[in-house]
Design a protein around this nucleic acid. Sequence first.
DNA 1: GTGAAAGCGCTAACAT
DNA 2: ATGTTAGCGCTTTCAC
Lengths: 338, 338
Amino acid sequence: MNPTIKDVAKMANVSIATVSLVVHNHKRISQETKDKVLNAIEQLNYHPSHSARGLVRRNSGNVGFVLTDDHFLRTEPFYTHIFIGSEFEAHENELYVLLTTINSDFNSSNKLPRFILERNIDGLIIAGKVPFPFIEQISKYNFPIIFVDYSPCAKKYSGVLVDNIQGGELATEHLIKSGHERIAFIGGDIEHPSIKDRLNGYKNSFEKFGLKLNDSLIEIEEDYPGRTNGYNAAERLFTKNKDITAIFSCNDAMAVGAMQYMKDNGIKIPDDCSIIGFDDVVSDNAIEPALSTIRVPKMEMGTEAMKLMAHMIKNNLKDNRKVLLPVDLIIRESTKRI
Amino acid sequence: MNPTIKDVAKMANVSIATVSLVVHNHKRISQETKDKVLNAIEQLNYHPSHSARGLVRRNSGNVGFVLTDDHFLRTEPFYTHIFIGSEFEAHENELYVLLTTINSDFNSSNKLPRFILERNIDGLIIAGKVPFPFIEQISKYNFPIIFVDYSPCAKKYSGVLVDNIQGGELATEHLIKSGHERIAFIGGDIEHPSIKDRLNGYKNSFEKFGLKLNDSLIEIEEDYPGRTNGYNAAERLFTKNKDITAIFSCNDAMAVGAMQYMKDNGIKIPDDCSIIGFDDVVSDNAIEPALSTIRVPKMEMGTEAMKLMAHMIKNNLKDNRKVLLPVDLIIRESTKRI
DNA sequence: GTGAAAGCGCTAACAT
DNA sequence: ATGTTAGCGCTTTCAC
């Protein structure tokens, strides 16, 4: 059996209260007894029981991490990296991460994850877009909530976000400075704030450099910005416009799809047409030519979120602070000066 | 404040014991009081506290999942998929997964993950190769342990494994049946049982089809079978042998490296040389030509491990059962008949 | 500076 | 069929 506080007390010839005080290294404890107790703890290899402690402290030492199932299953390791980041930072803060997925069509009749109902988390990190009914339900609970890469109810909840506007500008500027003027934008799910911001960045750069926006250069797919939709978007785009020399894709997944379309149709990348993505989730030499992109600091989003969470838990506060992380332009081989 | 069992008891006009019995739907409870209690539970939205329950039941409802940090950080989503699989299956079994990483150079002076010390897990899943000192330390504990994709101390511990020998045979046979005879094997970290088995499969097929093994066709790198080593192995291989027509790479990562070498040196794939990998972690159209490979059922490894774990926990047993999962040959465009 | 004791929310053996 | 009660291992007043 595992040693308990009683065993330690017995071995050190003190009361369990004293052991507890030593464990929390309370001031008013004589060095002498402190040593005795520490010694016993060492010898018995004593560690306080998580459950017992949680019961009296009314906390759990766990942080929930929620994703929709389709985000979790995505082939690009975007949310996985955010999770990894928060996992590492949790480690630093003596916290554990309880990951769970919810249905992407979660509705008000669905049950919340058990760790919420059973008070087994001290805070919740929500990564990516989640259904509104979910947000509505958890809002009744009293633990801190942090959104990552998505920020609904911004006045109410904290969020760790990426500067998508800046990214859109960087990508577009890179193309403009490389001599391109007929620059298309392809995207999907335009209601998603991140995507919308990327498009806004694109528009900003056009304005800044005095280029005229042209609706026929902007191709938005209805739903999810994935490969297939990237292929479709490129198809529609090139059917309408023969003279495009560059594409800014709202993410890497669509960019890969668009590249496939170009390859299938004899459009050389980057000679006939440059393309730049967003996210940096395609491992660099896995595709040809290597995709230029805007790097999103995924791990860092996770660590920042968990840092913020640890801080909120430790100080028992909830706020709506936002952390905005900068992005980087990564120039590889899919974009070229003309 | 969250409702407790007392609140329910008060509301339903029964004792807390009765509430507990209803929660566990014990037989000898009249339908009448059952309804009363259930009603109160519903109204108060009562859920038993995880900590309190854990304290008396001496369990946690959590399963630990351990990976070395470098495995977790690998770009190929191999272990991530195993984790996802176990996460989904945990969900089915009302369990939570506590993921943590350990140093890949864990030694006997390192501390074990807190969830072990604090008895916050009911069982442990270990994915991939972990340092021996770690195994040694956890062996003192009394919870069930399952290894995934690695099976040290096989007489003692359960394991979920993949049929690497069969995979090696399938890959090699595919090449032989496509008319190849000068078939090379490239690998790394040959002490790893999985890699060794893949090589054994290669040898088996040679024997089965009456081909002579040739040491100069087998190129083993000292350490980790990653892209860089794949590149190096290919370089050495082609420097020694000009007439190779096919390569079986011990995994996809090395295959991608080897493909890069071939591209850099004007060796056309698959016209000059076919290549097949192992794992199926390169998303299918991300690389050209699409890589033929042996698919390893990664998610399934995770679900199987968790199924086994849930079973062991439920029935309070530990055994050394093994689950061997079959692999599939996936023919894409990097292999060709000659 | 240290100990006694109450209590966190629950389960389960024992009473009734 | 239901209630009483003794813990589970810990923290935290409050005495001494």
